[in-house]
Each structure stands twice: as structure tokens, then as C-alpha cells.
Amino acid sequence: MRERVSAIVAIILLAFLIGASYFYAVQSGLKDLKYLPSENSPDYTATKLSLTDFDGAGNPVRRVIADKVIHYSDDRTDADHPRYITLTPNKPQVDASSDRGWTHDAGKTIEFEGNVKILRDPAGSTPALSFETQKMTAFPDTERFTSDSPVVFHRGSDSTTASGMDYSYANGTISLTGRVNTHIASRK
């Protein structure tokens, strides 16, 4: 009789244990589990990065290079020495670089900061172009660069200073604002 009672008690205890485990399993549904890293701890990093973007027809259209990239859980990405190079065929290459860069919207806009340079190769009879500034925003989809910081624009041997710029390398138009001063070197 004693063995029977102890067996029954053991079964009851085991059943209680199973029930409790099941109850807690249901309560803590996996979907609610959330890893909350601190805002500043990256979720991945990469060094010597080179990313190439392709258009719908499979042609490479741009390349982003960086010495180091740090990605965070809120989709913010920081980069050291980023370089943004256009690869559009039949168009002069445009090469933008700076000391630091970041994007908060998965590359829709890329911010460049510190010794920002944009170089556009010569094309046909038009000489090379270049811009120098300290801050610049790139809009890859619309193929534009804008800045509201002082900028120096070089076209061949001529140079222009301004306090802001909007350069569309898609259609080759440049807008400079603020008091603009152009220096055209003498031919003679």
C-alpha cells in the first residue's frame, strides 16, 4: 500500500512540473523575446569593404568602398574613409570621398564629412570638375550631391567659391549659392 501512495504522489508532482513548464513556455512566447542591445553597440562591423550596386539589367552603377563599416541595430551605418564611385557606362566617372560618412536610411542618403572631395573625370571637350567642402549629402537614387557648407568648385584652371551647392551628375547641372566668386585664369 505504501508503495502505491508514493507512486501516486510522484506522478502528481511530475504532472505539476510538466504543467508549470508548459504554462511558462506559453507565457514567454518566442516572438516577445527581444534582444535589446544598447544603442551604441554594433550588431556587425566590416573592414576593407567594397559594395557594388547593380541596376535592373544587371549593370553595375555604383560602388561604395570604406576602410571600416559599423552597423547598428537601428539600421544606422558609420563608415571610415568612405568612397562613392559611379560606374554608369558612357558617362564620366564621379568619385566622392571624405574622412567619415554615415547613412541612417539604408543608403537612400549618404552623409560625407571631413575633407569632402568630389572629382568628375573630363568628358569630351569639358575639363575635369571637382568640388571641395567639409560636409555633403549624396542622393544615389537621384544622382545628386548637395551641401550647405562653404564649397570650392574647380573647372579646369578656373575656380569658384560659394556657400552652398547642388550638383546633379546625372544631367551635369551645377547650382552654387551664396555670394559666388569665380576666378578665371588669364589665357595669356
Binding site: I174, I184, S186
Partner: peptide
């Protein structure tokens, strides 16, 4: 004068690479 550089100042500049 011809051997001197040209200086241009203005409030706004817009350039078009295609039409030069």
C-alpha cells in the same frame, strides 16, 4: 588687362556641363 585673370562675383551661379 588681357593678361590679368577675370574675377566674377554674383549671388548665384548655375552651370550646365552639357551646353557648356
Amino acid at each position: 588687362d588681357n593678361s590679368k585673370p577675370i574675377e566674377i562675383a554674383a549671388d548665384h551661379f548655375s552651370g550646365d556641363q552639357v551646353s557648356q
